[in-house]
Simulated assay, not measured.
Amino acid sequence: MKVVAIAAVASNGVIGSGSGMLWHLPEDWRRFKQVTMGHTLVLGRRTFEEIGALPGRPAIVCTRDADWHRDGVRVAHDVAGALEMAREAGEEICFVAGGAQIYAAALDLCDELDITEVHQSPDGSARFPAIDPERWRETTREPRAGFDFVRYERIDR
């Protein structure tokens, strides 16, 4: 199974501030929907509660809260367990979709990164892990007004 982290990341690495969306990029949301449709999303509990269930994309929510549950949502207590659930379900591609703690835990398990590089530097405490050029190679870049769609593949395996 291919594991892909997908995120919108500001120039300063910020992905969130804890108070909702930092930018409004309709083209990014359309692309996110197109790329992830039909595939499982691995999300942290707070991210899931912020965006909710997304039609056509089964969710596996990672939480340390043993009592947390939602109808129709699988629960794992760590990223490795979530990815194993997706693998056992026969997924060919699984997307890791945030938040910061989930990305940090998943980065070493990912095969590709699908990053929307947002040309802003907002304040925020949630950050995407640094993309080390010794481990990741940029394979495509699609410039847009105010952001770029960038894909990376792992090169250290």
Results as ranks from 00 to 15, higher is better:
Met1His: 11
Lys2Tyr: 14
Ala5His: 08
Ala5Thr: 08
Ala5Gln: 12
Ile6Asp: 11
Val9Arg: 14
Ala10Thr: 13
Val14Thr: 14
Ser19His: 15
His24Cys: 09
Pro26Tyr: 14
Asp28Met: 14
Arg31Gly: 01
Phe32Tyr: 10
Gln34Asp: 13
Gln34Glu: 13
Val35Arg: 07
Met37Asp: 03
Thr40Leu: 05
Leu41Cys: 04
Val42Arg: 01
Arg46Tyr: 06
Phe48Gln: 02
Ile51Leu: 05
Ile51Met: 09
Ile51Gln: 07
Arg57Glu: 10
Arg57Met: 05
Ala59Tyr: 05
Val61Gly: 09
Cys62Val: 14
Arg64Lys: 09
Arg64Ile: 10
Ala66Ile: 11
His69Ile: 03
Asp71Lys: 10
Arg74Asn: 01
Val75Thr: 13
Ala76Ile: 02
Ala76Leu: 05
His77Met: 03
Asp78Met: 07
Val79Gly: 09
Ala80Ile: 06
Gly81Phe: 02
Leu83Phe: 07
Glu84Arg: 15
Arg87Asn: 11
Arg87Leu: 09
Glu88Trp: 00
Ala89Trp: 14
Gly90Lys: 07
Glu91Val: 05
Glu91Phe: 04
Ile93Thr: 15
Ile93Met: 07
Cys94Leu: 04
Cys94Gly: 01
Cys94Thr: 15
Cys94Ala: 10
Phe95His: 08
Phe95Ile: 07
Ala97Gly: 02
Leu109Cys: 03
Asp111Cys: 12
Asp111Thr: 11
Asp111Phe: 13
Asp111Val: 07
Leu113Val: 04
Leu113Pro: 04
Asp114Trp: 07
Asp114Gly: 02
Thr116Leu: 13
Thr116Trp: 13
Thr116Cys: 13
His119Val: 07
Ser125Gln: 05
Ser125Gly: 02
Arg127Trp: 08
Phe128Ser: 08
Pro133Cys: 00
Glu134Thr: 09
Arg135Tyr: 02
Glu138Thr: 10
Thr140Val: 01
Glu142Ile: 06
Ala145Asp: 15
Ala145Val: 13
Ala145Arg: 06
Ala145Met: 07
Asp148His: 06
Asp148Arg: 01
Phe149Gly: 10
Val150Asn: 02
Tyr152Phe: 15
Glu153Lys: 12
Arg154Val: 14
Asp156Arg: 03
